[in-house]
């Protein structure tokens, strides 16, 4: 525990527990326990049964035997498919996050700089699309992107192209779907951060002769780093495991770990290997999560 936290804990023990315990219960119920179940399954062997894997322990004639096998993890190493899928998922997630950042930062900045009712309106416009079902919005994109969809029809009737541009079932469509879906997750934390930015710092910088670029790079950007990282994590982490968007918009060449997981689970009926794939994905994601946590932590201590 950091000195900063210990100080708060010492000052307000009762309230501190009250504030801290619910998140830990949440974490236990919705993360630790499900993860323990998945991890347990990853140590079993598949079987034709219900559920389709061997029992973790057997209690026969007063003897308790545990059956634990790491074979499923070793199996992931025997086939380059899994490695390729992880790399490809991380690549797609990284590129999507970058696009979200490039598109989202100016939007968040713009909203943060706006005053009064217009600001609420702009925020509303960011949030509003999520009021309809995510699935419906992805289907809407299918209508836009398909060969005889709206975009191609317009382009062809205007004579811009002779043949429809193939957009559906490509990686391009996957990026469109992901960026479109996850953009608000980047804009909102970034906005929350940018709106707190102290104008006096910028005024001081102007007085000292800094131009707009220098002001942005040396004041706004460093101060908004917390928002940038939070937003990027909120995009990157779920995108790595994304299944629905590549399934609906992507073609057969889009390899993502979510799809591999689906295949292990539903096509192979090999729940143990599927669980091993999921466990490895989680461990991979722990790296950026830990980095983020560290950063937040440093910032908290610096503010203290």
């Amino acid at each position: 525990m950091s000195p900063a936290r210990r100080k708060i804990a010492w000052r307000l023990p009762g309230q501190y527990l009250l504030v801290v315990i619910p998140p830990y219960i949440w974490l236990l119920l919705f993360f630790v326990i499900p993860f323990a179940i998945v991890f347990k399954i990853s140590l079993a062997e598949s079987a034709i049964a219900q559920p389709p894997y061997t029992a973790f322990y057997e209690y026969v004639e007063d003897v308790l035997t545990f059956r634990v096998s790491f074979a499923n993890y070793l199996f992931l190493l025997t086939d380059s498919l899994y490695f390729d899928a992880y790399v490809s998922s991380l690549r797609i997630a990284a590129i999507s996050t970058l696009i979200c950042l490039v598109v989202g930062y100016p939007i968040a900045y713009g909203i943060a700089r706006t005053q009064g009712p217009l600001q609420s309106l702009l925020l509303m416009l960011v949030i509003l699309p999520s009021w309809t079902s995510f699935l419906v919005r992805i289907y809407a994109w299918m209508g836009l992107l398909r060969n005889n969809g709206i975009i191609n029809s317009v382009l062809m009737s205007l004579g811009v192209v002779d043949e429809p541009i193939r957009m559906m079932n490509t990686e391009f469509a996957v990026y469109i779907g992901i960026v479109y879906t996850y953009l608000p997750f980047l804009i909102l934390p970034l906005y929350a951060n940018l709106v707190k930015l102290d104008n006096r710092l910028l005024e001081a910088a102007t007085d000292l002769g800094a131009g707009p670029v220098s002001r942005f790079l040396r004041i706004t950007l460093p101060l908004s780093m917390g928002g940038v990282i939070a937003g990027c994590m909120l995009v990157f982490i779920p995108v790595v495991g994304e299944f629905v968007i590549p399934e609906l918009l992507g073609g057969s060449e889009t390899l993502m770990i979510g799809k591999v997981l689906w295949g292990e689970f539903f096509n192979n009926r090999d729940w143990p290997v599927a669980s091993a794939v999921a466990t490895v994905m989680l461990v991979l994601l722990l790296i950026p999560i830990t980095l983020f946590h560290r950063y937040q932590f440093r910032e908290m201590e610096a503010n203290d």
């Binding site: 598949s46 034709i48 086939d79 380059s80 498919l81 390729d84 899928a85 057969s252 060449e253 889009t254 390899l255 799809k259 591999v260 295949g263 096509n267 192979n268 009926r269 090999d270």
Partner: peptide, 19 residues
């Protein structure tokens, strides 16, 4: 058999993703 199933599905994933 599960062995055939696995071989078939493994091949299938590779076929579909072009790996």
């Amino acid at each position: 058999t599960p062995k055939v199933d696995r071989a078939m599905n493994r091949a299938w994933t590779e076929i579909k993703t072009n790996q």
